[in-house]
Design a protein around this nucleic acid. Structure first.
Lengths: 211, 211
DNA sequence: TGTACATCAGTGAACGCGCGTTCACTGATGTAC
DNA sequence: TGTACATCAGTGAACGCGCGTTCACTGATGTAC
């Protein structure tokens, strides 16, 4: 019975206190990502701000990248919850209904991003680190898959590849716009959201028309 | 006559040999950004791969961030050159002509990105580091300004803010798509470029129609 | 064309520091009876 | 309800390492005459 190695995923903690500690570590990591960036953040720094000594962090995460990966996954799970909710409301209306409500999806997603400490920096860190980039990619593909399923139900004969690539692009642009909201202060957030929504809506509606 | 401080921008080198060395340092930094990421790259690492000792790097760059900033600016200047070239060819044709050739601009930009070692990682590093994010933001705003000028010539009465924010979004999405080309291998690059071009074209044409 | 001198490009060696991580341990919490 | 024991959460101290950066220096290149 070999002991679990550091490189393995740690089992979920047993006590409620530990769950809180784990969440606190992730919150703090998000804040620090925004303050000092991925190239300066350190495990010792995260532990210190969470009010812990460095070894405590290693009870929850195998190594430094595991912290950032968990942080990314937590954010993306929250975004996925928004997506599921939205699909439950609009998928049955068909592609046109989804297109008409794409602005809601963007706005709800933006709300999640706003609520999470350092959310934009988490997304960017996932993008900028070769060892983390797969997390973001997997998530975007998952979102695309879910949307593709929902649309395919109404366009049974349609080329799956065309559908998928169109939606994949829409997902990427939606996230890019979300990240831009917090950076470009020369444009109002509402105006930006409305314009992206209009573009994605047109793209989706076009999808519902092409042979 | 105080000596120049490390924090100041270094003057351009005097000898041709030095120009080459500086360029080599930047090329190497781009490669390393792609291989190890912004959170692992180091000045010693860059110098070593360029075949230099660490202090030589400090003859050219004030500190570590100055290297990355110069790398980012060099890439963005190359992209701007593509833009100027494209504007010279199509701006006189009006908004419709620009809209029709937006795919060329994207493709030429993608070619620059492909040619530069680690280009996508440079762009992402600029995005992910709080101390570098201004470089990218300034560049995107500059590109937006140039496009806005070109379009405003044909839509004199149009609300400048609407024009600018529409173009600003187009710029952001164009770059996002460019970065995506090298990451998402489930979609062909040509298809992706064509779809983005279509979206941006529609957005620009819409601009030429609204009152 | 040769030489003396000024400037420039790059080196060798080292610095203090904080990094990521591990060890053996202690005190807090939960469980069985 | 009390207590003995097992498990869990977190600590104190330290490690070797590579980081960013600087110093005083040397050898290469360019310039004036």
């Amino acid at each position: 019975m070999a002991a679990s190695r550091a490189s393995l995923v740690k089992r979920p903690p047993q006590q409620g206190r530990a769950q809180l500690t784990r969440g606190r570590l992730l919150d703090v990591a998000g804040e620090l990502l925004a303050e000092v960036g991925i190239e300066r953040i350190s495990t010792n720094m995260i532990a210190a701000r969470a009010g812990l000594t460095p070894p405590a962090l290693y009870r929850y995460f195998g190594d430094k990248y595991a912290v950032l990966e968990a942080l990314g996954r937590r954010l993306m799970e929250r975004q996925n919850a928004v997506l599921e909710d939205w699909l439950a409301r609009h998928a049955r209306g068909g592609i046109a209904a989804m297109a008409d409500h794409i602005g809601d999806l963007l706005a709800e997603n933006a709300a999640v991003t706003r609520a999470e400490p350092g959310a934009v920096w988490i997304l960017r860190a996932l993008h900028a680190s070769p060892q983390l980039v797969h997390v973001r990619l997997e998530s975007h593909r998952y979102v695309t898959d879910r949307l593709a399923e929902a649309c395919a139900a109404y366009r049974v004969g349609m080329d799956r590849e065309v559908l998928w690539s169109r939606l994949r692009l829409a997902v990427e642009l939606g996230f890019a716009a979300d990240e831009m909201l917090y950076e470009e202060d020369r444009v109002s957030q509402a105006a930006l959201l409305a314009e992206v929504a209009a573009m994605l809506r047109a793209s989706l509606l076009d999808l519902s028309e092409i042979a």
